[in-house]
Amino acid sequence: MKRVALYAAALGFVVFAGFPFYWMLVTTFKQNRDLYVGASDLSHIPWIFNDPPTLEHVKLLFGQTDFPRWVLNTLLVVAAVVVITVAVAVPAGYSLARLAGRWGERMGMGIFFTYLIPPTLLFVPFSRLVSLLGLQNSLASLILIYPTMTIPFCTWLVMGFLRSVPWEIEEQAMIDGYSRLAVILKVAPRLIVPGILTVVVFTFTLVMQEFVYALTFISSVEKMTVSLGVPIALVRGDVYHWGALMAAALFTSIPLAVVYNLFIDREPTFHHPFTRGGCHENPNGIVLRAHRRGSVHPLGCSSRRGPAAGRTGGQARGGGDAHHYGFHKRHSLHQP
């Protein structure tokens, strides 16, 4: 009986999470007539193909926009920002959490607060900075500016994560023959792998969906990122090319969902040890906590990941992510 309830709940969650994906899929391949007739014809069933599917919208997306180029740009920016963020936020979070004593905590809060200043305020001074550096209309401007939002958040994330990793393991290593520096370089990194993975995922997410800075700094079509190029090219005046928009959302989010799932499937193996292996904290608790913090994010983009990565079984995991990405794509499409 309990099992039935569990599976029912999981199924409900999967439907809830998977529906946006399904909707994207259907819309992508529907003929325009099939898409729009529902407004006037009440007998029309919107969630199935009433007319035969078409590749028309996909052709529009790939043939008449620079979509592949935007994907490439996005990947480039994301990769660079992930590297910068991990390189800065992980050591910063570690030092603040482990080495800076009471002031570390306060500074961590201070750093986090800078993250709360919205891009809609900051883009004004930043655009001046970018033009002073001569980086207008280049991907370099985004690589320079994006860490200003990812580093504070991720530093704080790493600090929070480290609070759940007992300091005793590192102290033990110092007793067992390592110097403090050797502990930081050799022992600690292995302990904070899950934290680093979380940082990567969050940086990815934040950068993927960013719109305001991209809109401010990038003006030529071939330098745009997906989140900017798609709405600009496919919303013309008040004409929404829904089929192509959904195609763009689909082709961006499916690979991401797959990649993130690889992360999530790995994470528990990284997490378990902490808990079962000698301290009291629940491993999933770590993920959950980290991700709940994630949900502080104003776009709420990450709030769904926690439970999916944490306790629910395999079926729910994919769903959690699918929803997550459906969500964030939708967001960027609403922007214009």
């Binding site: 393991i169 007793i175 023959g177 040890p273 292996g277 000698g278 301290c279 009291h280």
Partner: peptide, 19 residues
């Protein structure tokens, strides 16, 4: 430093390396 004191310590949490 701790490593040079010729001591061994067992913590309450045992502090085993999880991986």
């Amino acid at each position: 430093p701790p490593r040079a004191r010729g001591i061994a310590m067992v913590f309450q949490s045992y502090a085993l390396y999880p991986h």
